[in-house]
Design a protein around this nucleic acid. Structure first.
Lengths: 243, 243
DNA sequence: ATAAGTTTGTATCAAAATGATGCAATCGAC
DNA sequence: GTCGATTGCATCATTTTGATACAAACTTAT
């Protein structure tokens, strides 16, 4: 199918979606000691946006978020949490979408379903950076990771959504042990600490961090050692499977 | 206007609402050492429900919640917080509403807007019990307070919504100082402790509770003393106005 | 007036959690 | 083997929290 055919199909699926409701996902990844967010880019308009989409009439909003996540990353079974619903009357304008459609030869009337008011249910996801294959959607030409400290201006109220997702993630970090989802299956204590330091944006004392993590008794030592570097090799951990 | 005229008007306002989106409010009050929730009662069907409603196309969801709250309690300026959005495909059936409409002589077709799928944005409110005048809506005949431990079976997924609101409130209690909203303008330390004990459902040590509350430095002693009882009079507090 | 009975406000001590520092152990490079 | 680097953990200091005690302030009974 050509892009234009895809778009035609999409525009025609309007009636299959639950009206007024959209889902936006803040997908967090961790790479090279940076907390990253997956953003979509619109080449024509040079605009950025969060991965998002609409809810089919026969799926739950959670299912919609899972589906959108899968479509944009190629990964299922992702840690996902709803954090807030954004329900302002005017969350920004849809010029970018209009322009994108227009560039493909589709001129949307003002009352087109795509240009109506939508509330957006925000979900944040924690993914293993290396497993993700950023995949653009119909509107976008590119998907890519952006350092949380260098998020460009996004469409609509998406910058606010990212902010809220980040503050929720920070709160969750020491309430629920959830950070692991951003690392690979196994990891060292240093990697885990580095992750926490990046998310919380502050240094932590190594000895105390280790003591705290071990005291929760959810970590399991895997291989005894790990070689390569000129120093004492660290233990490698994984999360205990709650049997 | 007669009730039936009210209902007719309401049914005709369908197009003014944002489709698929509803708001439900869990209104907490505190009275006689009990945590209460305001519920509406449908006399014909003997069903109970949370106060809720729909979102006008030109108001935000927060504004809708505030409006609904005001309509059901007569109080504006209420502490209100969004806590979760419930987006399952099948949140339960609308038989009760259908029956209520029917009892007023309105037979709704299956595809009537009121019988469509709605997602519900949950808000919880903390109100001063004594200031509230429970007021029924078009569907209900009565509004009243119910002890959190004796919530009857509610329509749709409203029982789950109450549960989630309560667990969120408990989490919030020691993260954010928010309990005051359930008391009157001024209160004693004992009243505040009693409130905390009721919400958290556990006893707290008086001395330590007092120390903790005072250490946050948001309480202000008002009147020196308080008389009537045969013992040392307690201080009366109010929240410091953050100047 | 005085004593008795309560409840309040706060001090004090014990225990637990957290912050900070030090040191032995283990690896590769030389 | 020695050196430099990093890990794992012990240890101590500090802070927070849990538990108990006691004096102060009020009304009622005598």
């Amino acid at each position: 199918m050509t892009p234009s055919q895809n778009i035609k199909t999409f525009l025609e699926t309007g009636p299959e979606y639950l009206p007024s409701v959209s889902v936006d996902c803040v997908i967090f990844g961790f790479h090279e000691r940076q907390l990253k967010v997956l953003l979509l880019e619109f080449k024509h308009t040079k605009a950025f946006a969060l991965p998002g989409g609409f809810v089919f009439k026969d799926e739950s909003t959670d299912e919609a978020a899972t589906r959108i996540l899968w479509e944009r990353t190629g990964v299922k079974d992702i840690y996902l949490e709803q954090f807030h619903t954004f329900g302002e009357q005017n969350r920004g304008n849809w010029d970018v979408h209009k322009a994108t459609m227009s560039s493909h030869g589709f001129e949307l009337e003002t009352n087109h379903w795509l240009l109506q008011r939508f509330i957006s249910i925000g979900y944040y996801a924690l993914v293993n950076f290396s497993k993700v294959i950023p995949t653009p959607d119909i509107f976008s030409d590119m998907g890519g990771w952006h350092d949380i400290h260098q998020i460009p201006t996004l469409i609509l109220d998406h910058n606010r959504i990212v902010e809220k997702a980040l503050s929720t993630l920070r709160l969750m970090l020491d309430y629920k042990l959830v950070g692991f989802n951003l690392l690979s299956e196994t990891f060292t204590m240093k990697e885990l600490q580095s992750l926490y330091e990046t998310i919380l944006d502050k240094k932590l004392l190594r000895a105390n961090f280790q003591r705290k993590m071990l005291s929760m008794e959810i970590l399991e030592r895997v291989e005894k050692k790990f070689s390569g570097k000129a120093h004492k090799p660290p233990y490698v951990y994984r999360i205990k499977k709650t049997a």
